[in-house]
Design a binder for these strands. Structure first.
Lengths: 241, 241
DNA sequence: GCAAAACCTTGATCTCGATCAAGGCGACTC
DNA sequence: GAGTCGCCTTGATCGAGATCAAGGTTTTGC
């Protein structure tokens, strides 16, 4: 859980109000946009939570910066079939799912640290501060791009292309700046069931495709949850796009 | 082409600057948000286009209100497999696809009327005007919701549920306020190939499922492009969610 | 109005991924 | 350390939807 663990430590080291000290430092997430006065106000209204893996994040009327960990977003059909419609990796910004017309559930896949603000404050600040609005828009458009990428994968890729694309996505989120030719290893924060629910497959197919990639030499399966890729480039070849 | 045709006439009747007279009237699209001065400025910088069915909409550095017609957004895999990742029905707002990281093509499915503004003007106005930013954000989040709905459909629905869901979507866009129990008929602005590329199926499967719905009595196929539904409720039952 | 082209439907067969089934491997509990 | 539980893997079989094939129908162009 490389990145996530690191973020977690940042948070614990910061004993100041800590409204997103960590994401501010990364100039990512929401907080880069605020001035000192606003940060002070936000710090007063914000609250930090640690949420254990497996917990559903309730709609508590807040927006949150995800300081560490991974969150999944799921839609269910009436008979229980499930589709994961997105992930949030730290340091993403969370809160939108609860405003969707059809219900979307958010659940922590790993232990998760959140910094939450009442929506009313953010909405008011967005009125004073066009940059904040633009930032929120940028985030929404990024999520839209990702959703559309996965639509193409769900609709048109084969099972093995789907699994390869998934591994590439996790690898990229783990280390965005990784050299394309060098090996990389990372923890999968998901069970086979979650992977299947994301890719529109069954767990058996996911398992078989991972085994195939292993016998190919494209990946090594260290221990069910830990994967190494020979290289980004090697797995990219198998993604179909 | 019910809705689209109506909008088309509005446009032709308006001989004034007409920067989105029609969408302004509907209090939808972008223009509801502007004041008189801004509307005047936009009218000067805007241009209206009529685009025939089948044309690809190029990235010309503008945002556009879609005054009439239907536009599809597609992503292609390297070997030519195609996935439609979204539709725009009048009076939607267009322009975002061109900012995606991976290329998304926009193509007119019907004859289309557009009202386009240079992006720089909209961006500047968004800075002065938080409501505009909020409107853009709302649009983006709506598109995101829709994309996620279709992710669930692509990943987890059967072929017949996909086709039923598609028909319901078109019916809703044709007449958003339609009574759920009364019959409705509408033109499909898409070929079977387009429907298949949207649902992640083949044209043969789409054709067969439509035939099945017809022999069910759920739909009537008037002439390949024109469909009547017995009722919204009836087709909703077959959507799986 | 006829020919060509584009699009759609239906049938026969095949295949990829689902389903059914059995067993393996850790991680906890007592 | 034996037993249970949750999760994963692998094999055998099945079936929904793809592919292959052959018309049929609608549109377009001359």
């Amino acid at each position: 859980m490389g990145v996530a663990m690191a973020a977690r430590q940042d948070v614990q080291q910061a004993d100041v109000p800590a409204i997103c000290k960590s994401c501010e430092a990364r100039q990512d997430g929401l907080c880069g946009a605020f001035n000192a006065r606003q940060l002070a106000e936000l710090a007063k209204a914000s609250s930090r939570h640690e949420v254990p893996a497996g917990t559903e994040l309730p709609d508590d009327g807040t927006y949150s910066n995800l300081l560490s960990g991974v969150v999944k977003l799921t839609r269910n059909l009436s008979d229980g079939r499930q589709q994961i419609v997105g992930f949030h990796f730290a340091p993403d910004f969370l809160g939108r799912p609860f405003e969707a017309k059809k219900p979307i559930r958010a659940e922590a896949l790993t232990n998760v640290a959140l910094c939450s603000f009442p929506r009313a404050i953010i909405d008011r600040m967005a009125n004073e501060m066009p940059e904040l609005g633009r930032l929120l828009l940028k985030h929404a458009l990024n999520e839209l791009d990702e959703a559309r990428d996965w639509m193409a994968a769900l609709g048109r890729k084969t099972a093995s292309e789907k699994v390869a694309s998934f591994l590439l996505m996790v690898a990229r989120n783990t280390d965005p700046a990784h050299h394309p030719a060098s090996p990389i290893s990372f923890d999968l924060p998901l069970t086979r069931t979650d992977i299947a629910d994301f890719l529109g497959l069954t767990i058996e197919t996911v398992s078989r495709e991972l085994s195939r990639l292993r016998s190919d030499g494209t990946i090594r399966i260290v221990n069910k949850r830990q994967i190494s890729l020979a290289s980004m480039a090697r797995i990219e070849e198998r993604c179909g796009d």
